[in-house]
Design a binder for these strands. Sequence first.
DNA 1: CGGTATCCAGGCCGATACTG
DNA 2: CAGTATCGGCCTGGATACCG
Lengths: 128, 128
Amino acid sequence: MNRDDLIPIPFVFEEPCPIRDVLDRIGDQWSLLILEVLAHGTMRFSQLERAIGDISKQMLSKTLRRLEEDGFVRRTLYPQVPPRVEYQLTDLGRSFLVPMKNLIAWANANHGAIRDARGDYRARGADR
Amino acid sequence: MNRDDLIPIPFVFEEPCPIRDVLDRIGDQWSLLILEVLAHGTMRFSQLERAIGDISKQMLSKTLRRLEEDGFVRRTLYPQVPPRVEYQLTDLGRSFLVPMKNLIAWANANHGAIRDARGDYRARGADR
DNA sequence: CGGTATCCAGGCCGATACTG
DNA sequence: CAGTATCGGCCTGGATACCG
């Protein structure tokens, strides 16, 4: 066995790995978008639906429940007829958006470079 | 929470949205893990395979090609028999890991809170 | 050694219909 | 209003076999 094989095992191998656990949630189609919208304040189900525009009720419901389950969002039911349900970020949800903002800033700053890289990749592929 | 903590929505609706574009890559099963491992230095295909342990050749190959396509990783082929291929982070890949480390730190710090929230959620669910 | 081709299972997600 | 139930397409990712 070569020395090169003795790679120090990074924390991403922890069981369960925290960052992978987190990415499994916000890496999906809608979670980040919903957290972003909720950063503006408390909103009702139908408000979220309209604010996002192209999300189905099912995915909005499922995603909100997962975010609630993980403690990012608090759901408040007012037992009226018709029912009124409000969603708001928890402290955990708000604190998550702090490091996330850095990543978003990076993405905005480097999106052009990524798109250029894709163009280069395809151009090189055309040579083959 | 004061007004300045509020994050403006607009950029998540950009077409195409940079952060969603980025998350589509590193939000998958293996990308972040591979970037982490490559942060330790240049590695060959089979080294990556052994370092990660439970990744299939297919997924390692696919993921590396996507990372290469997006400019996070550089692939170097040495035309020998048997072939030798080395992978290393590009400047873009390394710069990505900077904001990513903040998010990882958050995940590590708050993983307990998330797991607690899941426990609470299930406990409340048992009442229903 | 460093991949690709093929098959397959499971989950994500949209569309639609229905409900308290 | 705020969901749930059901169906179905698509994509991800695992296992395996094959190849230069």
